[in-house]
Amino acid sequence: MRKYLEVIKILFKTQITYRFDVAMTVLFTFTRILFAYVLWGAIFDQREVINGFTFPMMLSYYIFSSFLSQIEMSDGVSGEIAGRIQAGTFSKYMIIPLNTQGYFIAQTFGAMAFYFIFILPVTILWMAVLQLGFTITGSFSVILVTILMVLLGLLFMIQLNYFLGILAFKFQEISIFLMIKGNLVAFITGTLVPLHFLPQDLVSVLRFFPFYYVTYLPSMLLIGKNEEEAFTGLVVLSVWLAVFTLLNHFAYNKLRVIYDGVGI
């Protein structure tokens, strides 16, 4: 476990190397909140409630889902794996005594740690300073379930991106897979528009897929909505996570033997 912790630490250290980057990221947290405030403020100017959402609810939803999509940094996993396989430098991970899947999970959590340590407190601070109306569930158990769901969701996304990355052993060029995944995820996770606004039949289908529970449901739970879906969410996510963990284990062992390490 200590070795994974050290991977988390080293990735976190790389995130805070450049002061200007850190300062700008923190600053943009403020602008994001401000833009959301202005945008949704204009929309809610005419009506008090849209589709069951009040202005503070919508703003809170946006802030939660935006934060969750920011900490979901697994995109880098598929890019890095594919890039290194293509360049012949993936061997870097094959020669160290560490499970490759575990390394990438730890690496992503290391990058994520930056957002928990810097962005979360700053977001809370700005909201307090700007005195924005804010809605959050009062149920401690819902918050705990949400944290667990977020964790499972992040792990699933890392596994998905790991799977797409190691496909480069076979296909070399995987940008088409990444593009499909990117579009799908942006839509299904509800980052663009709350899924609540979509036709209910479509939303029912989406509930069988893990993306629904990565950003959308945790954000809804935090503003006190959809609590009845929490348990189903944990089950669906756990099943998908288990499937992809096994799939990755077998796919990696099968595909890595065709690796030629060309480029070294």
Partner: peptide
């Protein structure tokens, strides 16, 4: 251990000492 002249295990953004600490844990 393997060292390839044009490939690196070091983290370029950090100090070499940071990579040493990582490898200390990786190799127990």
């Amino acid at each position: 251990a393997v060292v390839m002249g044009q490939k690196s295990q070091l983290f370029f953004e950090l100090s070499a000492g940071d990579t040493f600490l990582l490898f200390k844990e990786l190799y127990g």
